[in-house]
């Protein structure tokens, strides 16, 4: 029922919560919310809530990049966050979300992995970004990406003594050079809008998540959804994402 209502509203240029098509719900960002984590952020977009935590440990580098630290992004869709989520290993939606967030950070070269070497070729810092979905009320990707980058920019490297991590003590800030922001543009018919509420998300025909850098350059794109997108609509989608990414960045 709500789906049909949401669809009819969109077709008439309206939304379930009276927002404009290019308007986000209210956004709250809090950093440093988890004291045990090296960096953390809580993001609320409308009723959608996510927490991203950064844990940093000493690890070995990948053989093909011996002089770079390691970044691993993971998501857990906890069953409490939505009646649609089940416990167990991550499903394809969780994997896709984690990989979209990962690429936004990795491809923008935000995390300066070359500065995360402890012993070249042997020991590097491994940075885990774990994204916990607390309440799924739509637009998880944008919320997760926003939480991840805010957790990273506030993270501090653990203190190292004789090659071992000293629990609870921190040193330098984690070197983060950029702040990519991801905006997902949704399409229903000819209508483009951002930040779908949960009722809207189920009627979205296709959507494109676009990660945008400070200078408006694009660093990652992923088309999703079961419908195709007319080639000539792509530019308008990119333009909308770039514009809204600028707005979101002001909140950081």
């Amino acid at each position: 029922m709500m789906e049909r209502y949401a669809l009819e509203l969109i077709e008439h240029g309206k939304r379930v919560d009276k927002r404009k098509f290019d308007q986000f719900r209210d956004i709250e960002i809090k950093t440093g919310v988890i004291s045990k984590a090296e960096g953390s952020a809580y993001v609320r977009i409308g009723k959608t809530q996510v927490i991203a935590g950064v844990k940093i440990g000493v690890g070995t580098p990948f053989s093909d990049s011996p002089n770079n630290g390691v970044l691993i992004v993971n998501t857990e869709f906890t069953p409490m966050a939505s009646p649609e989520f089940e416990s167990g290993p991550p499903g394809e939606n969780a994997v896709e979300l984690a990989r979209i967030v990962d690429r936004g950070i990795r491809e923008s070269k935000s995390l300066e992995t070359e500065k995360l070497v402890i012993v070249p070729g042997e020991k590097v810092w491994t940075v885990f970004v774990d994204i916990h979905i607390i309440d799924h009320q739509g637009n998880l990707i944008d919320a997760a990406a926003l939480a991840a980058i805010n957790a990273l920019i506030t993270a501090k490297l653990p203190k190292l003594e004789e090659g071992k991590v000293v629990a609870g003590e921190h040193g330098d800030k984690l070197p983060v050079a950029h702040k990519p922001v991801t905006v997902t543009v949704c399409k229903v018919g000819d209508n483009l809008f951002v930040d779908p509420a949960i009722e809207e998300e189920s009627v979205v025909e296709s959507k494109v998540s676009i990660a945008v850098m400070e200078d408006g350059k694009i660093c990652a794109i992923q088309k999703q959804g079961a419908s195709g997108i007319a080639f000539n609509d792509l530019e308008a989608i990119v333009d909308l994402a770039i514009k809204k990414a600028g707005d979101l960045r002001k909140l950081m």
Partner: peptide, 14 residues
């Protein structure tokens, strides 16, 4: 003339 897959990595201007 419909796009059904679009993925992009790395930095580009619009």
């Amino acid at each position: 003339d419909i796009v059904t897959l679009l993925q992009m990595d790395g930095i580009l201007t619009k």
